[in-house]
Design a protein around this nucleic acid. Structure first.
Lengths: 223, 223
DNA sequence: TAGATTGTTAATCGATTAACAATC
DNA sequence: TAGATTGTTAATCGATTAACAATC
């Protein structure tokens, strides 16, 4: 297993998304130049990134289905991963209904919540179980991955329970930075991070629009 | 307005999340060393990052409420931003119900969908309107930001309509990389990107667990 | 004062870009 | 063949880290 630098690893899901989309549309080959344009990076960087993943074809480019398959191998998307989700609120329900994770090998086998009104029901065909049974079920079903969709205030406690029950990976959607032992994989998803960056750019744009804005390349964008 | 390097800008929302949480808990000061530990970066980098944003206090650290307020200014979170959302499926409904965006100045004033069963209803007190009225409403209400939560196949067309109606920023949750003119801000959110990285780490972990794994610092993590 | 912490400089490190030979 | 494109090397660029003087 060749290892991949952190910078490349961060871009690999974007390559994957774009290439899977191209494959869907029946595209067979794509050049580094074209891929670079879609990703907003230099063609040289595309060739360097992919050099550790797949072999291109001289004069033709990269074979789309092969490249998709190789990225799946490198990222480990091929092997199925079962997960438990904790928190059947609106975000939890949205993730349960979202079909896009199947492609990534994720199967959410059960959801857990403390609300008695939800327990026993099914969301997108996934059963909602009592939070009290959580640790026990994790051990019995040997589930290694937990998804957190509870409010911020409850998230750390849920994470602690996941760690205690032996889970290896935590995917956290609550807006807090969770802490866990170093041998547990924690990924803190921050839905508002992207929004912040839009706000920042929007702010810059409003100001340059106000103050006359020279007719730079790309057009002024007044509308 | 001091400008911020791309690397710092990418970290600023994480500083913000952590500092807002510390403020919530009544913490008054925090050192670069402590912040660095929470973010997983060097204390030296924290000082460098914040040097362009706020002044620390020698021997004491950074004043939490002041730092939060300054980051809000820099990111432009203070000024309210109205947005339209297109696609009232499960993801769209989850975003409409999510209260965490308020803090970032976002107000979703209406949702749009093509499904006649939804039109006229309200989700989290936000009206669902007919997609046919979209362009007209954007112009009349001078809405500058659009949120896309339709299926992948429909996303580019929705984006094109947003551009045509004069929107300045597009926040896309459909799993495709959208294209738009350079004067329009586009942010492609990839919910599965984080999942990919967990899969990659999990894969590495499974292999090292199989093959004996030296008792390195941090413990073996068998459970 | 002594000690803790910031702010900043210089050194290091890693990532990106430019250029071009190899190749089909 | 001529031409397009990969793969790779060297050069450049920017970001991170280490060190330490300034300071309260």
């Amino acid at each position: 297993m060749r290892k991949v630098s952190a910078a490349v690893l961060a871009r690999l899901p974007r390559y994957y998304q774009i290439l899977a989309d191209l494959r869907e549309r029946g595209r067979e080959f794509v050049s580094s130049e074209h891929l670079g344009r879609l990703l907003g990076v230099d063609d040289s960087l595309v060739r360097k990134d992919l050099s550790g993943v797949v072999s291109g074809v001289q004069r033709v480019g990269y074979h789309v289905p092969t490249t998709v398959a190789r990225i799946e191998e490198v990222l480990g998307l091929a092997n199925a991963k079962e997960a438990f989700l904790v928190g059947a609120g609106s975000l939890g329900r949205a993730l349960l209904r979202y079909t896009g994770f199947e492609q990534y090998g994720l199967k959410i086998v059960a959801a857990f919540d403390g609300d008695p009104a939800l327990i026993g029901s099914r969301i997108a065909n996934t059963p909602v179980l009592c939070l009290g049974e959580f640790e026990d079920m994790v051990r019995r079903m040997k589930i290694r991955m937990g998804i957190i969709t509870v409010p911020a205030a409850a998230a750390q406690e849920v994470a602690d329970r996941m760690v205690r029950s032996g889970m290896m990976a935590i995917w956290n959607f609550a807006p807090v930075a969770l802490v866990a032992p170093p041998d547990v994989i924690v990924r803190n998803e921050n839905l508002a991070a992207g929004l912040s960056l839009i706000c920042y750019e929007l702010q810059g744009k409003m100001q340059s629009d106000l103050s006359g804005e020279g007719a730079g390349p790309g057009g002024g964008g007044r509308l």
